[in-house]
């Protein structure tokens, strides 16, 4: 599905090169559920952001679904991103001014779905996540777990093939965290969504099919489960 080859990311700080990713290569197949682990500063989030096209590598080649991402223009990249990728954040990042319903609907608006279609798709999603009763509430009125549920619903609404999650359970208690992980597993198994998550928790990592350990911007180990 995607292939990173000799990816590097560094910042120039004064005279020093601050290397975050160092000549990293990685291939991911469709249907995988990958957990990226590693100590703070090992480059997990940067890697995820590069995979998600929110960030660009300094060097290297990036292929996604047969497209050479490193050669694409901003607009084409954005179109690719919209079509294939959904993002889930540790801090949920819902839009405070929008209701649950509207938050979930927004990606569809950006993808120019018709109003009737949007309605149907959002209703479907609300149903599936069991949050129909909360659709008119604002994020501030929800618990953390519920907010993350909405965040995932929003990430999935446009039917992405790849779901990226940056410590999705980091702000949740363990019970809520488990629920989210169960949901991820279900999405991966039943709907065939490829999932890449960054996590600190070994337990959560084990929900996946492969664990990649990063150290100092390089892949330290890759274990299939």
């Amino acid at each position: 599905m995607l292939s990173l080859q000799h990816i590097s990311k560094y910042f120039q700080v004064g005279g020093n090169k601050n290397i975050i990713l160092n000549d990293l290569s990685l291939d991911i197949d469709e249907g995988e559920f990958i957990s990226i682990m590693g100590p703070s500063g090992s480059g997990k989030s940067t890697l995820l952001n590069i995979i998600g096209m929110l960030d660009e590598p300094s060097d290297g080649y990036h292929y996604f679904e047969g497209h050479a991402v490193h050669q694409l223009k901003e607009k084409q990249r954005s179109a690719l991103y919209k079509q294939y990728i959904g993002f889930v954040f540790q801090a949920y990042h819902l839009i405070d001014e929008l209701t649950v319903y509207e938050n979930i609907e927004t990606p569809l608006i950006y993808q120019d779905f018709k109003s009737a279609e949007r309605k149907a798709m959002v209703a479907d999603m609300l149903d599936r996540f069991n949050i129909v009763g909360k659709k008119d509430l604002f994020p501030a009125q929800l618990s953390g777990g519920q907010q993350q549920l909405v965040g995932i619903a929003r990430a999935l609404i446009a039917k992405p093939k790849l779901l990226l999650a940056d410590e999705p359970t980091g702000n949740l208690n363990s019970k809520q965290g488990e629920e989210i992980m169960e949901l991820f597993r279900k999405l991966n198994k039943e709907d065939g969504v490829t999932i890449i998550q960054v996590t600190h928790s070994e337990k959560n990592a084990e929900y996946g099919s492969r664990i990649i350990d990063l150290l100092d911007g390089k892949i330290d180990s890759s274990r299939k489960l």
């Binding site: 998600g52 929110l54 607009k75 954005s78 991103y81 919209k82 959904g86 993002f87 954040f89 990042h93 819902l94 839009i95 405070d96 001014e97 927004t106 990606p107 950006y110 993808q111 929003r154 990430a155 446009a158």
Partner: peptide
């Protein structure tokens, strides 16, 4: 933050 979120869910 809102800008960031909207961009990350596909806003141009």
């Amino acid at each position: 933050k809102e800008v960031g979120v909207r961009k990350s869910i596909g806003a141009g």
